[in-house]
């Protein structure tokens, strides 16, 4: 059976969820992640869902479960890159994913986990600067 690859990035694990995940795949991911958190001693889990066109209650539940399990294993879970249409739909559906942290992109999600959030910009800054020099 296919499995979703889990990458180790420093002290975090990165999972990139692709379009239209099968239910079995989602369940396998739950198991794989918890095992890998323990073996790698990861401090956090980044789940990049920027490729997902929908998140239904099944996927939402999976994210919640992963977050809850990770918390027990002393790792933070950050869901990254949710699309606006998906977010609007999820709210309408009644899911708030209160247990998970969120970030706009992988960089910022990583900053949340490693805790150096907001320290990137020092000295003067002005709006003419290129946008990639934010904090994160």
């Amino acid at each position: 059976m296919d499995r979703i690859p889990i990458l180790k990035l420093g002290r975090a694990l990165l999972v990139t969820v692709q379009v239209d995940m099968h239910d079995r795949l989602a369940m396998a991911l739950e198991e794989d992640l918890s095992a890998k958190i323990v073996t790698t001693g990861a401090r956090g889990v980044l789940i990049d869902i920027s490729g997902l066109e929908i998140v239904d209650s099944f996927m939402g539940r999976m994210l919640d479960t992963i977050a809850a399990v990770s918390r027990l294993l002393d790792a933070d879970t950050v869901v990254v890159g949710m699309r606006p249409a998906v977010a609007i739909t999820l709210v309408e559906l009644g899911l708030s994913l209160n247990g998970v942290k969120t970030a706009l992109d992988v960089d910022r999600g990583m900053a949340l986990i490693t805790g150096d959030y907001g320290h990137a910009s020092e000295g003067s800054e002005d709006l003419e600067d290129s946008d990639d020099r934010g904090e994160g």
């Binding site: 869901v79 949710m82 977010a87 706009l104 992109d105 910022r108």
Partner: peptide, 12 residues
Amino acid sequence: LKTIAAARLMGA
């Protein structure tokens, strides 16, 4: 409220 909730889900 929904917009604020959606923004939070996106990480803002």
